[in-house]
Design a protein around this nucleic acid. Structure first.
Length: 609
DNA sequence: ATGCATCGCGCG
DNA sequence: AAAGCGCGCGATGCAT
């Protein structure tokens, strides 16, 4: 397979630019114009081509894309141009920006300039600054030639970076970069514009009603904390306060989970009730702006899915391009409205498969908590089992409430949560538990899952060693590789999870560890490392499963523990079986880890659940 | 005007 | 000894 490196230079102006618009919007805009493109086949000399969009298309179609891997730096951009404007679908897509993010951590700059400097492969030029506001025909021949040199330099840098990075880059992860990019560059999901318009109208109407009932003329009085506090004062209510965890200063407690604020929804004065309800129901504008974005995309075509490879510290994917498809509402007042507007194309069906309790299973397995692993393997009700231990009753006599406590314990206490937070979490779910009882439950969890508690201690010790540059392994043998010289834990994918600049300091409470993030220093401790690695390992498993599914069907989205794909109507039954089989499969390095899944099938994403 | 920190909230 | 965690978006409020 040939490797073709490509880089487009495109028209932009003050307002028509990637800093003002989403990538999808920019590339699909009528103003879009290629000024020129550089193409380099394998290690050959790059060519620079400029001309009309028709000429560029003809030029590009002269390459063997269907037998080649296309490489760029930020291929979501160049790959989308290749696909949407020139109808070219390379055999595979590669991206040095994504590779850099995975290899060097999400905190480090992944810009071509920064990565080229890091690898010492050359320096990025600056000619592009004179291109602002200029159409292709506005450039003189000399300017175009200079621009071409700049572009050729970028292509050479990108190619050199790839040859260096690919040596240490896992092959499966290259496949995942390809799969991720393809969700965007080769969109097939369709948006239901009618449903979106109806939803937007409904959201607006609901908000109007809330404002009318509260007698609010100007919405600004609700949005600003200060103004809202004044309105409460006018009704004789002292605004509830809390201490900001970020600054330690006093702040208004106006969030939907602030107990004192929630209590105002039951206030004797109806006007207070309406006011608080209006604030809670209208404060966030996300649903409206996002629905509008969907409507706008629908007017331009299919839905390119923007998910970012290796966005999280733990390797998980993240949202991108101003629409986070990983947090579409599935509960609450807007439950599934947007998801239901995402449709399979004509003749196709959506399959969504969710991995069952993947992180809890990984935790038990990594810790060697064999009784819990067996319970998962034997498909026992682990939440009931936990409740049975907590309440000292036989498993088949566990009540609904007791099971709920068992579930919250299994899902919450596995990473070191203390009694106070556990009690607060239960209360958030509307379940009252005295602090003493919360302490008792947390202690029972830690005793019953001794290996998991040991894993936290192991991780804590590993941190102390790593801070000094020493290596100490932890967890199930052979799963994680501790790399103290790079302050990283190598996940089973072969990719690192960094604790950049890890250091330990003596504090009143004892020694504490921190690592460097963009905002400053991030506290890290055993339980948190365990959470991070469980999330990272779960991501490795989902990744491998995604590759398997992708061999037969179009994967269109992933949301951490779920994989969404699109299959022909005629194959739905066998496809569903195949997808479930894939999600019950584990890689060789995860032998003994019991995984399971649930799946749903529908014409829309929202109806799969 | 623009950037940054913070908060709130959606998902997992 | 104890400590749940991971994102992205949009808004406000403040600094530049």
């Amino acid at each position: 397979m040939d490797l073709i490196t490509a880089d487009f230079e495109t028209y932009y102006s003050k307002d028509y630019s990637l800093s003002k618009m989403t990538t999808e919007e920019y590339i699909r805009d009528p103003q879009f114009e290629v000024v020129g493109v550089s193409v380099k086949v394998n290690n050959g000399a790059p060519e620079w081509a400029s001309g009309t969009m028709g000429q560029i298309k003809k030029y590009l179609q002269g390459f063997n894309w269907s037998g080649s891997m296309m490489l760029a730096h930020n291929t979501r951009f160049d790959g989308a141009i290749m696909s949407w404007h020139f109808g070219i679908q390379p055999k595979a897509l590669a991206d040095t920006m994504h590779m850099a993010r995975a290899l060097h951590g999400v905190e480090a700059s992944a810009s071509l300039k920064a990565v080229a400097e890091r690898y010492g492969v050359g320096v990025k030029g600056t000619e592009v600054v004179r291109a602002m506001g200029k159409r292709r025909l506005d450039f003189t021949d000399e300017e175009l030639s200079t621009y071409g040199d700049y572009c050729i330099n970028d292509v050479n840098l990108t190619f050199k970076l790839f040859t260096k990075m690919v040596k240490k880059f896992p092959k499966k992860e290259l496949k995942l970069i390809d799969a991720t990019l393809r969700m965007f560059t080769d969109p097939i999901l369709v948006l239901d514009a009618g449903r979106l318009h109806a939803h937007l109208a409904a959201v607006k109407e609901r908000k109007e009603m809330l404002l009318t009932e509260a007698g609010i003329g100007d919405k600004k009085d609700l949005m600003s904390n200060g103004k809202f506090a004044l309105m409460l004062n006018m009704l004789g209510v002292t605004p509830p306060m809390k201490i900001s965890p970020a600054t330690g200063k006093e702040a208004f407690a106006f969030a939907k989970n602030d107990e004192a604020f929630k209590a105002l929804l039951e206030h004797d004065d109806d006007r207070v009730q309406s006011l608080v309800a209006a604030r809670l129901g209208t404060k966030s504008t996300l649903e409206e702006t996002r629905t509008q974005r969907f409507i706008d995309i629908a007017s331009r075509g299919a839905l390119p899915v923007p998910v970012r490879y290796y966005a999280a510290h733990t390797g998980r994917w993240g949202g991108d391009d101003k629409i986070n498809l990983q947090n579409l509402p599935s509960r609450g007042p807007n439950a599934k409205s947007l998801k239901k507007a995402i449709l399979a194309p004509e003749g196709h069906t959506i399959i969504e498969a969710d991995s069952a309790q993947i992180e809890a299973r990984v935790l038990a397995w990594l810790a060697g908590q064999e009784d819990l692993v067996s319970a998962f393997t034997n498909r026992e009700d682990v939440y009931k089992k936990m409740a049975s231990t907590i309440y000292g009753v036989p498993v088949d006599e566990v009540t609904k409430d007791q099971r709920f406590v068992g579930k919250t314990t299994i899902l919450g206490a596995g990473y070191g949560m203390g009694a106070v937070k556990f009690q607060a979490q239960l209360q958030g779910f509307g379940f009252e538990m005295p602090l003493d009882e919360a302490r008792r439950v947390i202690n029972i969890y830690r005793e019953a899952n001794w290996n998991i508690s040991q894993l936290w201690r192991g991780a804590q010790n590993m941190l102390r060693y790593m801070a000094q540059g020493d290596r100490l392994d932890f967890g199930r043998v052979g799963v994680l590789q501790v790399d103290p010289s790079n302050k990283a834990i190598i996940l089973p994918s072969g990719l690192p999870m960094f604790y950049h600049g890890l250091f330990a300091v003596e504090e009143e409470k004892g020694p504490q560890c921190y690592y460097k993030v963009r905002r400053g220093d991030n506290k890290i401790y055993g339980g948190k490392v365990v959470e991070n690695v469980c999330q990272g390992i779960a991501r490795c498993i989902i990744g491998e499963q995604m590759i398997l599914i992708g061999k037969r069907y179009r994967v269109v989205l992933t949301v951490h523990d779920s994989i969404v794909c699109c299959v022909p109507d005629a194959e739905v039954a066998e496809a569903r079986q195949y997808v479930e089989d894939c999600m019950r499969w584990t890689p060789e390095w995860a032998a003994g880890l019991p995984v399971d899944c649930e799946s749903g099938v529908a014409k829309s994403y929202g109806e799969c659940g």
